[in-house]
Amino acid sequence: MIESFISFWPELWKALQETLIMLAVGLSASTVFGGAIGVFLYLWSEERLLKSPKLRFIVGGLVNVVRSFPFVILMIAAGPLARLIAGTTIGPVAASVPLSIAGIAYFSRLVELSLMDVSKGTVEAAQSMGASLRKIVFSVLLVEARPSLILGFTSLCISYLSYSAAAGVIGGGGLGDLAVRYGYYRFQTEIMVATVVGLILFVQLIQSTGNYFSRKMDKR
């Protein structure tokens, strides 16, 4: 067991790196673009901010469309786009493209949800001070929603980890792919178990880190 594990270490290390690449690219894209879309979805729904049922319907609908795709199919469908952006359709960087698309859609809803919990009164107070929309977003909404945004981001990270496992289908590699290839196809159960245990630990670590920072930020 230990022997096979040691001989297997380079594979595992490579898979871990691939997973981390996918996480880094996907999470950055989701945070920036998903965050922005989430903020707008919220602003478009609020009477006193940027109320626009039309834009909300269109963009919200688009988000729903992306979210209703089974991830495996989204990944294949995003192939041409991956070629355009990453220059290739295989490998962890290419797999980051569909991952990012799914993550942007997912995170935008999480951000929207967090902002909906911010007390309307604080927004109104800022408006009574003559705050610009930009100031309301960055100094009030995002600050007041911070603990819940951190938990949302934590959730995103964990979903990402499980999405990235499916990246093996288009040669994205990563830990999940490793578990499937060696553990399932080659009947090396101990490899599969080891990888899954590793993933479990990884998820626990992400969640506790997220909880810790969220609690630390929460002054309510």
């Binding site: 007390s119 009164g121 604080t122 109104e124 107070a125 009030v140 600050v143 007041e144 911070r146 603990p147 930020m217 929460d218 002054k219 309510r220």
Partner: peptide, 8 residues
Amino acid sequence: HFNLLANR
């Protein structure tokens, strides 16, 4: 209800 920012 005061409407203070809780995280400031």
